[in-house]
Nucleic acid binder design. Structure first.
Lengths: 143, 143
DNA sequence: AATATTGCTTGCAAATTGAAAGTAATTATA
DNA sequence: TATAATTACTTTCAATTTGCAAGCAATATT
């Protein structure tokens, strides 16, 4: 797979990787919903089809945003984990959640509350660090 | 047009609107490349097709992220301008540019330099405010 | 009055997405 | 140990989206 970039713009180039319906949803599921296995993802609210999931995971792996690992005591279940490059997407996820809370809520009647949003807004950097640290603690003993 | 949201997650709902190849590219072009007219967009480096542009602009208008205005002395040329809801996407654009500078540059050999990136990183909030204020100054006298 | 420009729309081919079913390897259960 | 269930996919095919090219109507320019 050799990805093509549209032009020399850094923002457009980021969107050449992240700009689709599923990539950032998968990152979010890994980062804050503890999704780690193929099955975890298929069971999520977003209900991604297995063929799409398979191709997107492959793509994320090629960009080194995630890595695929095996548990030492289980040859069947693969673990998909965020790399540093993937964890560096946390600020984008955080900004998406703020914008959504303020601008999309009114359009989606079933949108769930974000009780932590005020804490988040009061100190974004601390919140981002907390999410990343929590992820690392949760995953460091898995492999 | 009645948009469908995948689920109750605020982040996924944001991506139901923003998660595609073109939407955030168009926002970026308006916000920092002074693109305002249909022609402006078609002449950009990203070279969007006119039918796609037309449908995306319509979509952005329906979500109240942009507004379409006419110059009083020109009945042909339409101006597309960001609303407050659209300007509130600036932090997302800024985070995309930081992530890209640090993580995509190595993959895209033709990516242009971002000389302002260090200024940006040293005070994100000030940079975001500057972008928004500059946009408002540039556009307030157009209509 | 003739030409060029702007802002689209239409038609069609190519690519992507998605639902459903199938498969192979591994693990759990009777 | 045999059977069933689970996981992680792949395949097939239909539906949707994207993209190129051409066309067109209204307005602006020469």
């Amino acid at each position: 797979m050799n990805h093509k970039f549209r032009c020399a713009c850094p923002i457009t180039s980021a969107l050449d990787i992240l700009g689709d319906k599923w990539i950032l949803v998968i990152i979010k599921q890994m980062l804050i919903e503890d999704k780690r296995t193929f099955k975890d993802f298929t069971e999520s609210d977003e209900a991604i089809a297995t063929n799409i999931l398979s191709s997107k995971l492959k793509c994320l792996e090629e960009f080194d945003i995630i890595t695929k690992k095996q548990l030492p005591d289980n040859k069947k279940t693969n673990l998909y984990l965020l790399t540093e490059k993937g964890l560096a997407l946390t600020p984008i996820i955080v900004e998406l959640s703020i914008w959504s809370d303020e601008n999309v809520r009114a359009l989606n009647s079933i949108m769930r509350d974000s009780p932590e949003i005020e804490v988040l807004k009061s100190d974004k950097n601390a919140f981002i660090k907390m999410i990343i640290d929590t992820y690392k603690v949760k995953t460091e003993n898995l492999i």
